[in-house]
Design a protein around this nucleic acid. Structure first.
Lengths: 211, 211
DNA sequence: CGATTATGAGTGAACGTTCATTCATAATTG
DNA sequence: CAATTATGAATGAACGTTCACTCATAATCG
């Protein structure tokens, strides 16, 4: 082998992957056992590195936890914005957004569980709004969607945070059930769930035009 | 003072209250800082008792945590079943149930935050279904409501867990926002939110009779 | 180009801290 | 004055973090 490399399990890794291996191990363990059930000693054990190695890449455990959050948030952001039909009617955009988000989490259950745990922990409480709803990337799109929906009377005249909860709250429960094996999500079911969420937010005295 | 008593803050307590004081202190601290941010030393400190006293009432910290869950679950059960209109139409029962639950948590934010943390932690994962949906008290009522709604075609023909998520998922987000001060829930708003949840679950091709 | 030195990623035993829990003792009760 | 209840210093396990050290590789040298 022409450059430094090493073996973990059956695979051969270039040195650049070590950080990623640690992050993956942390993701799995934290999802399985929670933040305080995933000591650094177990994380490095699963990653196949020594205790000290983790501090080559992360200043401390908190930094690792936040780095994981940032990476997942970026993945999610890219996944749900790809192909977003900015020019289509509101209903189309709404369905696209919710369907994509459901789909992403159905396919990446660990990402969902991690973010859920993060935002339900003392780490995440203060940052919740910044990341989920405020002036940032995907949050912008949600805000744009809902405020336009309200002003054009395609959606119910409720506070934006309420419409947000009607649109995405069911997803929190459904993905949890999907992860835990109480239900299996396929594309058809995802489409029907998304349509039901639209029923929740849409104005029941419809405006002159159909959205 | 004629019987043994002691002072906490401005109040005087008989000894029978000591267990309750410990539980209240644990509730507050765990909601504020999470399970691993609420060490026994802090709990007894807030309760105004010595470290050892907690073990007079609870075998260990886990037992305390589960006892709190049980007490809150019982409170919630009683609150939402009081005055439940078993003989009224499905829609009436649905609105009553969801409204009552929203109302209860809006008035008892600590209870909500505790249960949320509990069920999102390794403690609660395995028990989630037993408590929230299965053959038990309030769970029975939800199951009865949804299965009747499906079979009589007043609700969408979706898996029960999906209808459950459409009915109660938004509440998870809204109460969190209420607790964190992003929104203020009053009776009027609660009624409008509940109505929107009904829109989500109700069959859009209505049956012959109005429910 | 072979030999020598420098580098820094990787290591893991050891450290200090924090935690839940215990128990000998003290205080309070009827 | 026995019995019950409360106390808090002491304990040991578990944790995150540190740091002196190793060694494969890269850089430099003669």
């Amino acid at each position: 082998m022409s450059e430094r490399s090493f073996i973990i399990g059956a695979g051969v890794m270039g040195e650049k992957d070590k950080k990623a291996v640690i992050m993956q191990a942390a993701l799995e363990l934290i999802v399985e056992r929670g933040f305080h059930g995933a000591p650094v000693s177990d994380i490095v054990g699963r990653a196949g590195v020594a205790a000290g190695t983790i501090y080559q890449y992360f200043e401390n455990k908190d930094v690792l936890i936040r780095a994981l959050r940032d990476e997942l948030a970026e993945n999610i952001r890219q996944a749900i914005l790809e192909g977003y039909p900015s020019e289509k009617p509101i209903r189309t955009r709404f369905l696209f957004f919710v369907e994509n988000l459901l789909s992403y989490f159905a396919k990446n259950p660990l990402h969902f569980r991690y973010m859920e745990q993060y935002f339900n922990s003392p780490y995440g409480i203060s940052l919740r709004r910044d990341k989920a709803m405020e002036k940032r990337d995907s949050g912008d799109i949600v805000h744009e969607l809902l405020s336009e929906g309200i002003s054009k009377r395609f959606m119910k005249n409720l506070p934006e945070v309420v419409l947000f909860s009607l649109a995405l709250g069911p997803m929190l429960v459904i993905i949890r059930d999907h992860v835990l094996g109480f239900i299996t999500l396929d594309d058809m079911l995802i489409r029907r769930i998304t349509a039901a969420c639209w029923d929740a937010v849409k104005e029941t005295q419809p405006a002159a035009e159909v959205p």
